[in-house]
Amino acid sequence: MKGKVWKYGDNVNTDVIFPGKYTYTLMPPEEMARHALEDLDPEFASKVRPGDVIVAGRNFGCGSSREQAAACLKAAGIQAVIARSFARIYFRNAINLGLPVIQCPEAVEALEKGDEIEVDLQAGEIRSDKGNFRFPPFPESVIGILQAGGLIAFTRQKLREKGII
């Protein structure tokens, strides 16, 4: 899938991705998507299109462990987040909720807002007019989690295939 780049800097924290004031209310995904990046880029939620990609600097997702900070980007249609680095808990939450997070400093260096890119998870490659960038491909199991749409769904699927449930 092709998409456009949304570019941000270092230390994009979970509060600006999904504000704390909404975290303790239950919210359907479409509504979460409407608040995505609200305090960083007010344009984002209304202009983002399915397949778009976020490209950011160091320590993306630092701060709280709230899972909504990954869920809201996924709900907004974001195909993947590419960053120089991710905060540890965010990285895991994202994969476990089915949002691909890719560490690729070279791509971050080269890509600009609005660039059209394609992310190939299986091949471990980002393709764009600015060049192609490689990252270590996710192993099959992680791709499985992403394709199933998250860890709980993936686990259920796996156990069903084995005839355990």
Binding site: S65, E67, I89, R92, N93, N96, L151, I152, F154, T155, K158, L159
Partner: peptide, 13 residues
């Protein structure tokens, strides 16, 4: 250290 969802999944798999 890991999250709760992950622990549930480890218990299962």
């Amino acid at each position: 250290g890991i999250g709760r969802t992950e622990m549930a999944s480890i218990w299962a798999t």
